[in-house]
């Protein structure tokens, strides 16, 4: 998609500028102008060609978009919480269920505001500020929350982008296909330290990921 758009617009850019340069050079006041008012046929042709090119870019674009927003079925769910000015992550733990949260319960020890009354929250695993490890070739569904203002979790290599909006949960998903170290940066202006809101992300093989996750304390363990 990106390539096709680049090619079409690139050609259009060069073509228009060549024509512009030629006209500017060719009709540079040495001869009298001709009184030409319009040329409906030429205009119709140009209209048709333009509409066609637009359609060529738009239609595949919409198909590509339908794939972007189609949720993967076998997925690893991670919750991402944006706050001024760091990223925090949460895994649901053994039970696969995230404990209930409430913004009012957020403290420096409980950055997600997990409700202690909810038993499903005890085995959740919380990572404050990162880094986040993800298994390679495993579809990942990120659920975004924000405790304060808008943020946007942006890892250029993953090519997805969605705001973390306070008051709601937004989602995006992707499948990391190459092991390595990446970085998430904030791509929605979030106040005076917007530019420092980065977080490290490691894409590793499944075994290493499991090892990393198992070594992290659960919420219950962390409280002891």
């Amino acid at each position: 998609m990106m390539t096709m758009t680049t090619v079409i617009t690139g050609i259009a850019f060069v073509a228009v500028h060549l024509v512009l340069a030629y006209f500017v050079f060719r009709y540079s006041g040495r001869q009298k102008a001709e009184h030409v008012e319009d040329n409906p046929r030429l205009e119709r042709t140009l209209l048709l060609i333009t509409s066609l090119l637009i359609a060529i870019m738009l239609v595949p674009g919409l198909f590509a978009y339908s794939q972007v927003i189609a949720k993967p079925s076998d997925r690893l769910v991670v919750e991402v919480l944006g706050e001024q000015w760091r990223w925090n992550y949460r895994f649901p733990g053994e039970d696969g269920i995230f404990g209930r949260t409430d913004v009012r319960l957020i403290t420096s020890d409980n950055v997600f505001g997990i409700d202690p009354a909810d038993p499903t929250g005890a085995d959740d695993i919380v990572i404050v500020g990162g880094p986040l490890y993800l298994p390679v070739n495993q579809p990942v569904l990120l659920q975004f929350r924000s405790k304060d203002v808008l943020h946007n979790f942006w890892v250029p290599e993953f090519r997805v982008k969605i705001d973390a909006v306070p008051g709601t949960v937004t989602e995006s998903w992707f499948t990391p296909t190459r092991e390595g170290t990446y970085q998430a940066a904030c791509a929605e202006y979030c106040g005076v330290a917007h530019y420092v809101m980065t977080s490290e992300i490691h894409v590793v093989d499944a075994a290493e990921f499991e090892q990393w996750l198992a070594a992290l304390p659960t919420v219950a363990q962390a409280q002891e």
Partner: peptide, 14 residues
């Protein structure tokens, strides 16, 4: 045309 086409926009947005 990049930014209006939603699938192309997402990586370029902001």
């Amino acid at each position: 045309l990049f930014l209006g086409n939603v699938a192309v926009d997402l990586p370029l947005h902001d």
